[in-house]
């Protein structure tokens, strides 16, 4: 029942309550009722504090919440990340946790810490640890997923020496926070909290297929750099246009494409959605150049 609802998308008004329940953060919070408060009050290792402070204004520099140095966004982010280094001293702080914690704070400040704990420990173990073994493993998994779901693209990547770690490290580690329009991101996270890491791999595979799925697309990317430029460019393009009018556009497309679909169907719908947005963006550019 819950899974079906997640596929349809969690209503914005309920998201703040659903995510912590889905990922188990609510339970953890109950079990360790005053732990976060205690960690928050204790000082952390100065070396971690320095690294975290240097990153506070490098997460969502254009988001209102994170713009001012002493604003509640940056302060909240500091507290959550600092507490995590005390909670899990062997892991400390990994830079990719910054954008993830920021998105959690935007949605549910009170449970953000425990959601981050659940993501780092249960959903993506080894993603933020000193050796990043989880990332290395899932990058290899992505190769396998691509081989299964889009052999032509997989072969193209192999021929040109393009490995998933070259283009998908930040996709996976930041859970697409920097790569998808915000409304789409929230929908992907709805699914992620429900189904776990395979959602990330599937979204990554869809993005790759969007760039290299057709023979003529592959022909245009003759070389490692050309291929990488396309793969990286797809997301930065969406990222740049994600604010303002495009967002409202996404919602409409999102509803039409996503509603009532099965997971795989959603991901296919995604291709259509990205296609539409990029055509639309090209239109914008043409208008701009005139």
């Amino acid at each position: 029942q819950v899974k079906v609802q997640c596929q349809k998308g969690i209503p914005a008004s309920l998201r703040a309550r659903c995510w912590p329940l889905l990922c188990g953060a609510s339970n953890r919070m109950k079990q360790h009722e005053n732990l976060y408060k205690a960690l928050d009050e204790q000082p952390a290792l100065q070396s971690w504090v320095d690294v975290i402070e240097r990153d506070l204004d490098r997460q969502f520099p254009f988001h209102e919440m994170f713009q001012s140095k002493d604003g509640h966004g940056q302060r909240g982010l500091f507290r959550v990340l600092k507490a995590y280094t005390q909670y899990q001293p062997e892991d400390g702080y990994c830079q990719a946790q910054g954008p993830v914690a920021a998105v959690l704070l935007m949605n549910m400040p009170a449970q953000a810490f425990w959601c981050l704990v659940q993501i780092s420990e249960q959903y993506l173990p080894g993603y933020y640890s000193p050796l990043l073994e989880g990332v290395l493993f899932d990058a290899a998994m992505l190769t396998w997923v691509l081989k299964k779901t889009c052999p032509a693209a997989h072969k193209h990547l192999q021929n040109h020496g393009v490995e998933p770690l070259m283009f998908a490290t930040d996709w996976l580690m930041c859970l697409f926070t920097r790569h998808l329009p915000f409304n789409t991101l929230l929908r992907v996270w709805d699914l992620f909290f429900c189904y776990g890491v395979r959602v990330l791999l599937q979204v990554a595979a869809v993005l790759v297929r969007r760039v290299l799925g057709r023979a003529e697309q592959r022909k245009q990317c003759q070389g490692q750099m050309e291929t990488l430029e396309r793969l990286r460019g797809l997301c930065s393009g969406l990222f740049l246009y994600s604010s303002g009018i495009l967002n409202s556009f996404c919602v409409v497309v999102g509803h039409a494409v996503f509603l009532g679909c099965k997971l795989s169907a959603i991901m296919f719908g995604w291709v259509a959605y990205v296609k539409i947005t990029s055509t639309w963006m090209q239109g914008l550019k043409v208008c701009g150049s005139r």
Binding site: R58, Q59, P61, Q95, L165, T169, M173, C174, M225
Partner: peptide
């Protein structure tokens, strides 16, 4: 030059 930008995760490249 962007005074506010985002931290690099993994690798990126330019030509």
């Amino acid at each position: 030059f962007h005074p506010s930008h985002i931290s690099t995760i993994g690798v990126d490249f330019k030509m």
